[in-house]
Simulated assay, not measured.
Amino acid sequence: MKMVKKLALSSLLLLMVAAGTALKVQAQETDDPVKIDIYKKFYDNRNNNQAVAYVAAQDYLKRYAKDKDQYVDYLQKWISFYERDERKRMLPGLINEKNFAEAYKVGAKILADEPDYLRAQIDLGYAGYLSASSSNEAYNADALGYARKAIQAIEGGKVPTEWAPFKGKEDTLAYLYYAVGFLTLKTAPEQAIDSLLKAAQLESDIKKTASTYFFLAAAYEAGPYKRLSADFQTRFANKEESVESKAALEKINVVIDRMIDGYARAIATAGNDPKTEASRKTWMTNLTSYYKFRHAGADTGLTEFIASVLSKPLPPKPV
């Protein structure tokens, strides 16, 4: 006579935690050795080897979900929590691999479960900059939303589960403001100025990054300089100088001075870094042009200005 393997499943799990509530399991015997083995595999690995436990739990449900008992209910909840935590573990890796499409899918699921999960908001906010700087702007709008929510939360006193890969609160905020500045540079350059100024004033590596100041100069150029110059042409072109035209021109000059400052800081911060050599040439061309415009066609003092610019406070946005 063939022996039938019997085992009370409850002996494998006397106390289960489901959705935060302790659930006592009543004894339940089964004559199905496969059912017992699969559940035992799950139980034995549920703490120290959850990937194996996850596969076992899925196998159990694939075979026995129709039972609709407390074991099925528990495994369904366990799988749900496991997948939630696994998504959190996956997200940084997807971003590091530049798999932005999958990162934003996973991130959306994380935030659907936990709308205020700050770590994901930070990661997805900065990931938008990484994606856009690689010529993929598909996630700009989502990234801006996440970055702004993260900034608001951090400035409101919230703390993520960990600051890494950033160095702390100020470093995280600097990178987020930098991302917002970069992502709004084309569509809202005047807003980009505000974000980039904040990024540059926080104690962070962003403060020592040449592109911060180049983007700031570019934002002034694409924003207030373009707007004020167009207005000046419309109102005062081919007309005699007046009090109003002089005042309008002075506003343009103030913005040009901010552009000069930004380009000079970018060049000074870059130093002799070979990675920025091509950019420095372009920045120097732009800087020289604007500097000469403001100094009667001469570049006298420009070298000294660049050498000393980082010792001066970053000028505020003109009113």
Rank of each mutant, 00 (worst) to 15 (best):
272 N>I: 08
133 S>T: 09
234 T>V: 13
211 S>A: 03
257 D>G: 12
136 N>D: 15
155 E>V: 09
135 S>K: 12
144 L>R: 06
85 D>T: 05
141 A>W: 07
164 A>S: 13
118 L>S: 02
264 A>M: 09
37 D>M: 07
97 E>K: 14
40 K>Q: 13
51 A>H: 03
47 N>D: 06
273 D>N: 15
48 N>S: 04
289 S>Y: 12
302 L>W: 06
24 K>D: 14
198 K>T: 14
196 L>H: 08
37 D>G: 04
123 D>N: 14
298 A>Y: 02
319 V>Y: 12
185 L>S: 12
85 D>Y: 14
276 T>L: 14
142 D>I: 10
39 Y>P: 00
74 Y>F: 04
172 T>D: 11
206 I>S: 11
214 F>G: 02
216 L>Q: 01
287 L>G: 01
128 G>F: 05
235 R>K: 10
164 A>F: 10
9 L>I: 05
92 P>R: 07
187 T>W: 08
109 K>C: 11
181 G>H: 01
114 E>Y: 15
226 K>C: 06
244 E>T: 08
139 Y>V: 04
110 I>F: 11
319 V>A: 15
54 Y>A: 07
60 Y>V: 02
145 G>A: 07
86 E>S: 11
6 K>W: 12
244 E>P: 02
62 K>L: 06
18 A>P: 04
11 S>H: 10
196 L>G: 03
227 R>E: 14
202 L>Q: 08
203 E>H: 15
150 A>L: 05
35 K>A: 04
305 F>P: 01
80 S>I: 01
9 L>G: 04
83 E>Q: 15
179 A>C: 08
311 S>M: 15
215 F>Y: 15
172 T>V: 00
151 I>V: 12
172 T>G: 02
211 S>W: 13
87 R>V: 06
305 F>D: 06
300 T>N: 12
15 L>M: 14
278 A>N: 11
106 V>K: 04
140 N>G: 00
89 R>T: 07
142 D>E: 13
209 T>N: 15
118 L>G: 03
104 Y>C: 06
12 L>E: 05
87 R>L: 09
64 Y>W: 11
288 T>M: 03
162 E>C: 10
155 E>C: 09
144 L>A: 02
9 L>K: 07
63 R>F: 10
161 T>G: 13
44 D>R: 08
101 A>R: 10
60 Y>G: 05
2 K>Y: 08
13 L>C: 10
67 D>P: 05
223 G>R: 00
280 R>K: 15
131 S>V: 02
296 A>H: 12
159 V>R: 05
155 E>W: 11
74 Y>E: 08
156 G>C: 00
197 L>W: 03
111 L>T: 02
271 G>F: 09
112 A>T: 01
